[in-house]
Simulated scan of single mutants.
Amino acid sequence: MSVPLKVTRIDHACQLIEFGEIRVLTDPWFTQTANYYAGEPTHLTVAELGRVDAVVISHEHYDHCDLDSLVAGGLDLDTPLIGPGTVSSIARSKGFRDVRAVEAWEATSVGDLTVTATPGQHGVHEVTFVIQAYGRTVFFGGDSLRVPELDLVPERFGHIDLALLPTNGLCVRPLNLEQSVMNAEQAAGLTAVLKPTLAVPHHYAFHSGRLGDQVITKTDQDPRHYADAVARIAPEIDVRIVLPGIEVTVP
């Protein structure tokens, strides 16, 4: 019998995923700067997190890899930290002692937890993840674009219980609106392929400040566009828009 699977959004793509007693933190972000705003309240401080069994990080951008906050907040630096090589080198420099470098289709285990990197594409090197324990499977999309290789995830891993996907379609204005994150329609298309029991959008409230939104980034901040797209192309899939701090139990 599989264990309870729960997820709590902290903010942005920072999620606390619980496979029974196993607690996994994704893409930590607990602070902000002049050009990086979560656009929503941060649910917990690092000190309030409690025990974390593994930290999973998709890429090195500050709003997904806020390692200074983890260190300052007192996270145990023996906590396994899993990410691509670009992240692992930074983590070691910050004092993390159990750093696991994984690239696409490579896996590592922490007790009964298995974390497999899956393909991704972003403005910098990125991986996405399949996170598994006790017969439950989560796909974590970081803030990747939709890449064709992700269509192989169900074939390789079987049923997906929970899919956590970015939806804001972030484009960079100085780069002729080059897109670096999947948009609502693309995320819905991937959702239709993954066929999760539950899909939760993230990475949509982010903004670059009043000036930054005008000259640096262009985004879709309304997750209802994703929910509507899934309802249109894969109506059998349950989508929940989850505010920070709300714990969701996955059937």
Score class of each variant (00 low, 15 high):
Phe96Met: 15
Gly95Tyr: 11
Leu75Gln: 04
His159Ile: 06
Tyr226Met: 12
Tyr134Glu: 02
His64Asp: 11
Tyr226Ile: 07
Thr197Lys: 12
Arg232Gly: 09
Val153Met: 06
Lys195Arg: 14
Trp105Met: 01
Leu145Pro: 12
Ser88Phe: 03
Thr114Ser: 10
Ser180Met: 12
Val115Arg: 02
Trp29Ile: 02
Ile246Pro: 09
Ala187Arg: 05
Leu81Ala: 04
Ala117Gln: 05
Arg136Glu: 00
Thr26Arg: 04
Leu44Cys: 05
Ala13Leu: 00
Ala91Phe: 06
Glu155Ile: 14
Ala188Ser: 08
Val248Trp: 03
Ala227Gly: 06
Asp66Gly: 04
Arg240Pro: 13
Val130Arg: 02
Tyr36Asp: 15
Leu164Gly: 03
Ser89Ile: 15
Ala192Arg: 12
Gly135Met: 05
Arg136Phe: 02
Ala229Thr: 09
Leu113Cys: 07
Ile90Met: 14
Leu198Arg: 04
Pro4Asp: 14
Ser69Thr: 11
Ala205Ile: 07
Leu190Lys: 07
Leu16Met: 13
Glu106Phe: 05
Leu152Trp: 09
Phe19Gly: 04
Asp161Asn: 14
Leu44Asp: 04
Thr128Met: 12
Ile241Val: 15
Arg51Thr: 15
Arg9Pro: 10
Leu164Tyr: 02
Thr219Phe: 00
Ala205Thr: 12
Val127Leu: 10
Glu60His: 03
Phe140Tyr: 14
Asp238Phe: 00
Glu40Arg: 02
Val115Trp: 02
Lys195Tyr: 15
Ile233Tyr: 11
Ile82Pro: 01
Thr116Gly: 10
Ser88Ala: 15
Phe140Lys: 09
Ile90Pro: 15
Ala188Gly: 03
Asp143Trp: 00
Pro84Arg: 00
Val71Arg: 12
Ile131Thr: 10
Thr31Met: 05
Trp29Ala: 07
Leu5Gln: 03
Gln121Asn: 15
Phe96Ala: 06
Lys6Tyr: 00
Ala184Leu: 13
Ala205Arg: 11
Ser208Cys: 06
Glu18Thr: 08
Ile131Ala: 04
Gly209Asp: 10
Asp78Tyr: 00
Ser69Asp: 10
Phe157Ala: 06
Leu175Cys: 04
